[in-house]
């Protein structure tokens, strides 16, 4: 409630003087309240509708099982030698797909439900809400991918270095760049509703990024995921800890993450601004 709606000499509880309003003492919501509301909503949906998460885990494991068993039949020893790298790569891929599709699909849904506009016409705007949702999606994806990782280790009998701080920091920063791509894809969906489904195909391109030849082609390190993937391999396969990485590697990891997140967010902002000019925002 703004100051001009409630005269200063009159306490907010009295509002328009209606007795029914007694008991109200509206206080402004801060970013803390906003964060709590957005994260609580994500939490509620996650625990109330576990079928989505479980379905994702089952599908991911099915694909991995097919990959592993099929690979053993075709490549035999060669696959067994590189199985650690495959497990790490697959783990990062499930994380990336989870973060990307949850953000882009989420924006698509909000457009369809008419809730995106309601965020735009609020004092906070959609920006902080979108970032908080991104955080929630990353946390959620880590939970499901951890289950997938554990199952993969059991199926293959592989051992990996699982230092939590190192793994979460490196993998987390790696997928922040993908989160940026998710925002960009969400923005494109706001403008061109039907393209959204096609953009989901991008997630198969993540395989190429995760296995990018960063040693032979150093410039690929600035692509999303590539540099982070190489670092995650070293951390999980060779047991390199976070503080043992060269500072330049860590700096590049952070720069790529923030660069794509910011870039993706700009695309999203541009797309919604254009949608507002064209009058197609929420015009589903």
């Amino acid at each position: 409630m703004s100051a001009d709606a409630t005269p200063p000499e009159e306490p907010a509880t009295e509002g328009t003087g209606d007795a029914a309003r007694a008991g109200d003492d509206p206080r402004s919501a801060t970013y803390y309240h906003l964060a709590r509301a957005v994260l609580y909503r994500e939490f509620l949906i996650f625990v109330r509708y576990p079928a989505n998460a479980i379905g994702g885990i089952v599908v991911s494991l099915f694909f991995f099982g097919a990959l592993f068993l099929g690979g053993q039949l075709l490549a035999g020893q060669a696959l067994t030698d590189s199985i650690e790298g495959i497990v790490v790569g697959y783990f990062l891929w499930t994380l990336s797909v989870g973060a990307y599709s949850s953000v882009s699909n989420d924006i698509g849904s909000e457009v369809q439900w008419g809730t995106l506009e309601r965020h735009i016409t609020t004092p906070f705007g959609f920006a902080p809400v979108a970032l908080l949702k991104g955080v929630a999606k990353v946390v959620r994806t880590f939970i499901t991918s951890a289950v997938i990782l554990a199952a993969m280790l059991l199926i293959t009998g592989t051992r990996l270095s699982l230092a939590p701080v190192t793994v979460v920091a490196v993998a987390g920063l790696s997928i922040v760049s993908v989160l940026g791509l998710g925002f960009a894809a969400g923005g494109v969906t706001v403008l061109y509703k039907r393209i959204g489904n096609w953009l989901n195909l991008l997630q198969f391109g993540f395989v190429a990024l995760i296995s990018a030849p960063v040693f032979d082609l150093p410039w690929t390190r600035v692509l999303p995921l590539a540099h982070g993937s190489a670092m995650l391999q070293r951390a999980m396969v060779d047991g390199v800890r976070l503080w043992e990485f060269p500072l330049a590697d860590l700096a590049l990891l952070v720069a790529v993450a923030l660069g794509y997140l910011f870039g993706g967010y700009l695309v999203f902002q541009y797309a919604t601004a254009r949608a507002r000019r064209l009058g197609v925002l929420g015009d589903y």
Binding site: M1, R21, D24, D25, S28, A29, A37, R118, T122
Partner: peptide, 14 residues
């Protein structure tokens, strides 16, 4: 209520 800028606990009665 929260995204409209109001702490929801403060308007529970409303």
């Amino acid at each position: 209520a929260t995204i409209s800028g109001v702490d929801p606990d403060s308007v529970a009665a409303r």
